[in-house]
Every structure is written in C-alpha cells, then in structure tokens.
Amino acid sequence: MMRAENISKKYPRQTKNANYFFAVNPMSIEIHKGSVTEIIGRSGSGKTTLIHMLAGLITPSEGKVYFGDKDLYSLSDSELSKFRNQYFGVIPQGHTGLFSLTVYENVLLPSVLYKNMESKDEEYAMELLQMLEIDSLAGEYPKSLSGGEIRRMAIARALINRPEVIFADEPTGDLDDYNTEKVLKLFRKLADEGMSVVMVTHESEAKKYCDNIYRMDSGNIKPA
C-alpha cells in the first residue's frame, strides 16, 4: 500500500568528516493496509523525521515515497497538500491546538479545507469527541484544556477525514493509562477496519496492539 525506497534525510551541520549529518540514513520500509506499525528508539534517532517524510511533510534528501503507484514528492505542493488532507491523518508531537478555534472547530477544520461542510462531518466529529471522551469540551478553546485533552483533540482531528493512513508521533505522550489504552484500542480497531497506522511511541503497552515493530538507532532502522 505504501512504501519508501532508499529514503534519507541529511541536514547541514559540521561533523568530523562532512558538512552535514544524516538524521535518517538511506532506508526502505513498507506499510501494509490494515496494519499497525510501531517505531521505537531513543530520542534523536530519526523516528519523527522518518514519519514526517512518509507523511509528505519533510522532503527526503534522497529516495522516493510511494502511496500505491503515486510518488508523493513528484506532486506539486497543492497536489500533495490535498492528497495529505484526503488520505493521511497526522498527529504531531506536542500541543497542536489552533487557539483561535474551539475544540469542535479544530476537529472539523480538515473536513472543510477542500469542500463545504456536510452534516455527516459534523456527526462524525461529535462521534469522535464522544469516543475520546472530550465531547463536553466541544465549545472550549484549547487554552483552557489540559495537555491530555489537547492530545485527544489532535487525534480526533487526524481521524475526521477517515484517512487511509494515520501517522502518530507519540500519540499517548500526555495521556494517563486509561486514555492510553483507549487510544491504542481505537487504533487497533481502525486498522482492523482497513486503516493503516504508523506510530512513534515509547509506550511499552503499545506492542500488543501492533503488527510490526521497528527500532531506530542513529538514523538506521531494523525490525525490533
């Protein structure tokens, strides 16, 4: 369904032998439909850079990323942005609330970027908020929410367009055990329904919900 071929990312920085360093060394990976893939590794090992390259958010220095037969980085910015909106859901690390919008509007926003809002979007947004138990906060602005609540809002926002692939960067980082399990179960359920999930996590509990686990170390990847 999705594959990366010999992708790498290097950044300009003075090192011993070169004027740059590799955040991700040349590598290939395949994401299967309906699978949950976990990427683990120490901080700075290149996990976030990898999933951002897969999600079309960081242009690889070398290599290609395919979704089906489509080479993501051969698309124009407008095409890639629309493609990401329709097929990918991205949950970035940290607090990612848009502070001018309510929780409900934050969740709905991706659904109105390329079309007018439909009633099924509104219903699905409320369903997601209920599923993540933040429906009572729908009218609140992110500044009045806790880290865990903002994180669950970001998860709902990534799911609103019913994407084919979810890229989640430490999706359970701010969550308590109860909500961590709830989110991991939700990912598993969605994968069983055909969605693919790629997540970076330090969560030891996650492995029981995953189909594939990779470890990254100094920009290199190998099955864990």
Binding site: A55, L57, D77, S78, L80, S81, K82, F83, R84, N85, Q86, F88, V90, P92, T96, L109, P110, L113, Y114, R157
Partner: peptide, 8 residues
C-alpha cells in the same frame, strides 16, 4: 500544513 493546507 499538516492538515493539508497548501502554501497557496
């Protein structure tokens, strides 16, 4: 941009 907003 993550949500799919283009540069334009």
């Amino acid at each position: 941009r993550v949500m799919g907003v283009s540069q334009k």
